[in-house]
């Protein structure tokens, strides 16, 4: 399957139009008129939403008429593979972090990418991940006193 820029122009125009419609409809529920003490809460966002929907559809129609990017690929196959190889571990990192905390999540993420994608030896990769987590701890927890998200593993080391 090939994604042309033309298709993406249409998708994005559609999505922005939808975002505008959602904003406008959400504001309608809040009241967009004139209350006792002045404009109601939906007053300002309603017009923003309407304008957004109008301009989004304008972009879509313009892309259709001008055939903007009809021949241009949005992303080449080899680029898409490279992006997916980067994006996959990153998304996994976010999911891991939510369950295991930022320190463990970041350490595992760096370990995996250095080992599997950087082709480093596993013990070097583990050292890198561990070292990075320790550096985060020193900078945030100790120097700036900003606590980061912790999971079930940190209490085992006596860190709360």
């Amino acid at each position: 399957m090939v994604i042309r820029r033309f298709h993406m122009e249409l998708v994005v125009a559609g999505l922005t139009c939808l975002a505008g419609a959602v904003t406008a409809l959400g504001s309608l529920e809040l009241g967009v008129g004139w209350g006792e003490s002045g404009p109601e809460p939906g007053y300002f966002p309603f017009y923003i939403g309407v304008l957004l929907a109008l301009l989004g559809s304008y972009n879509g129609v313009y892309a259709l008429l001008a055939k903007r990017g009809d021949q241009e690929l949005f992303v080449e196959r080899r680029h898409a593979i490279r992006l997916a190889r980067f994006f996959g571990p990153m998304a996994a990192f976010v999911i891991l972090t939510i369950f295991l905390g930022l320190y463990v999540g970041a350490a595992l993420y760096l370990f995996y990418t250095a080992w599997r994608q950087g082709n480093y030896r596993p013990h070097f990769a583990a050292l890198l991940g561990g070292g990075f987590a320790v550096a985060l701890f020193v900078v945030f927890e100790l120097m700036f006193k900003v606590p980061l998200l912790k999971g079930p593993l940190e209490p085992l080391f006596g860190i709360y």
């Binding site: 972090t97 939510i98 082709n119 980061l148």
Partner: peptide, 26 residues
Amino acid sequence: AIIGPMIVAVCFVGAYTVSSATFDLW
């Protein structure tokens, strides 16, 4: 392969410190 994931991790750590919300990571 080393510096890229580090930048990513720093970005997510930074986003978390804004209001300590995991929703912000998404």
